[in-house]
């Protein structure tokens, strides 16, 4: 990596992009992520209606392809006649922001605590892990209600609250992985060569935490979107007229039997986001592992040659 000059950095970046394109699922995932981000960012320009605009004459209008639907409300309307498509476009902003921020903050706290406990061991480990145990055994929703009760509902509160209740799982994962990695001969070799602890942690231990952490944070991202929906449903999370996918799924539940589209479309938006992040993350995981990456490269090469022979 360091053996090449800086002049080659640019070329490496384009080749990395080509590598992404050659992996179809990952490319689709990446494209979907870009699409979703652009759509939600520019929601005010794209959305046909204000998401809070009520139109009581067009309540519970079905999507366009069902009898009674119209092109005016492509994905139908909710119980107050608000346009579902516009609500999804706008709701993505809050959902993605809360999901992303919470995952990153919880991940950061969890990794620091986990590394500290796993690398130092002994008393630091016991104390930190007991804190984790206490936090895990404490009902999350109760803590959320407590914090929201003190500092009041809002998006910042949601991010803080969800981070505080979700970091433990990362800490536990990181701690156990670090403890087993510390026993591996190459980490021992690094220490005996004379590496300082910081180098051992950042060069030899942390890179090996990427795959499990990627997988876990994507699962946690979904959890957080749903947790945000649950808290919003209780009235402690995102406050109307602000909107989020989770909130829409939660409120649409009452109309599930007469207007399925209220739950289905925000639900599909959540599922699609998670799926595309997953596809992309899978590619990142392989790319950060030299052995897996070379295997993928060999597979691609073999596939290309076979195609070349048959045609």
């Amino acid at each position: 990596m360091t053996d090449q000059g800086i002049s080659q950095t640019g070329r490496r970046r384009t080749s990395l992009f080509r590598e992404l394109l050659s992996d179809t699922p990952a490319a689709i995932g990446a494209a979907l992520i870009v699409l979703i981000v652009v759509l939600t960012l520019f929601a005010p320009l794209i959305a046909p209606f204000d998401p809070a605009d009520q139109n009581l004459t067009a309540r519970l209008a079905p999507p366009v392809w069902i009898d009674g639907g119209s092109w005016q409300h492509v994905l139908g309307t909710d119980s107050l006649g608000r346009d579902v498509l516009s609500r999804i476009l706008h709701g993505g902003q809050v959902t993605l922001l809360i999901g992303l921020c919470t995952t990153v903050i919880a991940l950061a706290i969890g990794v620091v605590i986990g590394l500290w406990a796993g690398y130092c061991g002994g008393r630091a480990d016991s104390i930190l892990m007991r804190i984790v145990d206490i936090q895990v055994s404490f009902p999350g929703i109760l803590l959320i209600l407590l914090i929201v009760g003190v500092i009041g509902p809002g998006m910042m509160t949601m991010i803080i609250v969800l981070s505080v209740t979700n970091w433990m799982v990362y800490a536990r994962l990181v701690r156990s992985t670090v403890m087993s990695l510390r026993q591996t001969p190459y980490v021992e070799a690094a220490e005996l060569v004379g590496c300082r602890p910081a180098r051992v942690i950042f060069v030899h231990i942390l890179p090996n935490l990427i795959p499990p952490l990627l997988t876990l944070s994507i699962l946690e991202f979904t959890n957080i979107v749903l947790a945000e929906a649950a808290v919003s449903f209780l009235g402690f999370g995102v406050q109307p007229p602000a909107i989020s996918w989770g909130l829409d799924v939660a409120t649409g539940r009452d109309y599930l039997f007469i207007a399925w589209w209220l739950v289905a479309f925000p639900g599909i938006a959540i599922a699609l986001t998670v799926l595309s992040v997953n596809l992309f993350a899978n590619w990142v995981r392989v790319t950060t592992d030299p052995q897996e990456r070379e295997r993928r490269f060999a597979r691609d090469l073999a596939a290309r040659q076979r195609r070349g022979l048959s045609s």
């Binding site: 990596m1 360091t2 053996d3 591996t184 001969p185 190459y186 021992e188 070799a189 690094a190 005996l192 060569v193 004379g194 590496c195 300082r196 180098r199 060069v203 030899h204 890179p207 090996n208 950060t288 592992d289 030299p290 052995q291």
Partner: peptide, 27 residues
């Protein structure tokens, strides 16, 4: 310096040979 028993686990799989051999010089 130490030479370890198992050559399959004593080299960091995420580092190039050049980085592994240069590491003692670096640190």
């Amino acid at each position: 310096q130490l030479v370890l028993q198992d050559p399959y686990t004593s080299l960091n799989p995420r580092m190039r040979i050049a980085d592994i051999v240069a590491e003692p010089l670096l640190v």
